[in-house]
Design a protein around this nucleic acid. Structure first.
Lengths: 137, 137
DNA sequence: GATACTTGTGAATAAGTATTCATGTAACGG
DNA sequence: CCGTTACATGAATACTTATTCACAAGTATC
């Protein structure tokens, strides 16, 4: 009925808490052993959440191999400069982009070489899915 | 002040719309050329959104190399079976997991070899970030 | 068939979030 | 200075979403 909490609490592995019902004890144990740490899960989900927004994804895509000022980014992704600026702050806080100041412009560049790899791999994934025809069914 | 729309409209590239101000015309053109298609952006962001939830991420992590029934997944990720069932439906609809029915149990497996790769790469990224000490500052 | 068990699902709801508007601030030009 | 440009930021708000509760549906067991 409610939604009491979201983050911060579920990052616990609950090894000590009551485990409602377990059918395959060994499978659960293995799953728990192989489970990324709470910190890793938090970092990963934070990163994926950031990439999960179309505007941010476009911003990152636009910045591949290029530095751009805010208004050009806005034009590239088709959003207002204010909206882009808000999202750039999110990306900045996660160290995904970095800004260089030149006059009154601010030129943004990607600050994370791994993110490009992840997106490239995910793009390949999407292309493969489409080719296989198993994307939306 | 408002937030009139979110998806479905911003997926347009707006090549025809008014582009507020453009400083570096060539950079914007290049960015637009290199921009993934609206369909790709939508698919990518949908996939990243799914991975952006800690519970779903844990579910996927638990299912790596293993098939599990719902109650064991719930015990592994530390959530109620209902919550897990809801999330499994999301994962099912995106063809990330697949269910096998056996008696009254339902055994889930990963249905996407690429997702594991993406997560593995992202994990490496997080580990690297931590080592560099540039994750939360 | 009745009952217990496992999972799916719908409604409710609280928390989260992305955009817009308005405004602030720094940099440059007059 | 004063206005303009380029960007940042705070508040407002509409939209999204993850969990919980209650219950339904299917299955095995008695």
């Amino acid at each position: 009925m409610a939604r009491p909490r979201k983050i911060d609490q579920i990052t616990e592995s609950r090894d000590d808490a009551c485990e409602d019902r377990i059918v395959h004890v060994d499978a659960v144990r293995e799953a728990r052993v192989g489970m990324p740490s709470a910190h890793e899960v938090a970092s990963l989900s934070a990163m994926f959440s950031i990439l999960g927004d179309p505007t941010r994804l476009r911003i990152i895509a636009a910045l591949r191999g290029r530095e751009m000022c805010v208004c050009d980014i806005a034009a590239s992704v088709g959003q207002s400069e204010s909206a882009v600026s808000h999202q750039l702050r999110v990306l900045r806080e996660q160290n995904l982009v970095r800004a260089r100041k030149n006059g009154r412009r601010r030129y943004y560049v990607l600050d994370d070489e791994h993110v490009e790899d992840v997106i490239r791999m995910a793009l390949a994934h999407v292309a493969h899915e489409d080719g296989e025809g198993s994307v939306s069914e």
